[in-house]
Simulated assay, not measured.
Amino acid sequence: MKEVEKFTDEQIADYLGQLDGWEYVDGAIETTFEFKDFKEAFSVMTRIAFECEAQSHHPDWSNVYNTLNIRLNTHDANGVTEKDFVLARTIEDIIESEF
């Protein structure tokens, strides 16, 4: 298996410029989405979960009623990598296609 390369703070900042609402906090990129209700939030989480499996990359996330918090980092690299930004863009696409 190919080793993934941990991004520098500068690389992370550059990539974050391509995403709306994501921040670099404590070694991960994170964001929060708010939905109409729990059912809508959970529906989107389910769609995201299938993409996570397809990419073999899984977020640290939490859901309280209509709010979804997502944190991405690559545990194998002990930091943020290209995999995190690929998944973040996929999540953005899912959110945009839903609303």
Rank of each mutant, 00 (worst) to 15 (best):
G79S: 09
D37N: 15
N66S: 13
E34A: 04
T46K: 14
G79M: 01
F38Q: 09
G21T: 04
E98C: 05
N69I: 07
K2S: 13
P59C: 14
I48N: 04
A41C: 15
I94W: 00
V44F: 11
E51R: 15
E34P: 01
L19V: 04
Q18Y: 07
A13W: 04
N66V: 11
T90G: 09
F42P: 02
K83D: 05
T67D: 04
T67P: 01
Q55K: 12
F85E: 03
L16A: 03
F50Y: 13
V44S: 10
R47E: 08
E51Y: 10
L16G: 01
A28R: 13
Q18N: 10
Y65N: 09
D84Q: 08
Q18C: 07
N73F: 12
L19M: 12
E3H: 11
K6G: 05
E92S: 02
D76G: 07
D76L: 11
A49V: 00
N73L: 12
D76A: 15
A54E: 12
I29V: 09
V80Q: 09
D37P: 10
E5S: 12
I95R: 06
E51P: 07
L72H: 03
K2G: 10
N69T: 10
V86D: 02
A28V: 04
D60H: 09
S56E: 15
F7M: 15
T81M: 04
E51V: 14
K39W: 06
G21S: 08
G17S: 11
D9L: 00
A49R: 11
E30C: 01
A41M: 15
G17K: 14
E98L: 04
T8R: 13
H75D: 13
N63P: 05
E96I: 09
V86Y: 02
I12G: 06
S56A: 13
P59I: 14
P59L: 14
Y65G: 06
T31N: 02
Y15D: 03
T81I: 02
Y15W: 08
D76T: 13
E92L: 00
E96M: 10
T81D: 08
I29E: 04
D84L: 06
A54W: 06
M45G: 03
F42Q: 05
E92T: 12
E3V: 15
D93V: 02
D14P: 03
G21Q: 03
H57W: 05
F85L: 07
V86N: 04
D37V: 11
G21H: 03
A54S: 13
V86M: 05
W22V: 14
D37S: 09
C52T: 10
V64G: 02
M1T: 09
E51M: 11
R89N: 05
F7H: 06
L72I: 06
I12K: 01
E96H: 12
A13H: 08
E5G: 06
R89K: 14
D26G: 00
R89Q: 11
D60T: 11
R71M: 09
D14H: 12
D20F: 06
V25A: 01
E30H: 02
F7A: 01
N73K: 08
E40S: 15
I70E: 01
R71K: 15
H57L: 06
V64M: 02
K2N: 12
D9G: 01
A77H: 12
V4P: 00
A13K: 09
Q11C: 01
D37Q: 13
I29T: 03
E34R: 08
V4Y: 08
D9H: 01
V25H: 08
R47A: 12
S97R: 08
F7V: 02
E23N: 06
A41R: 14
D37T: 10
T74H: 01
T67Y: 05
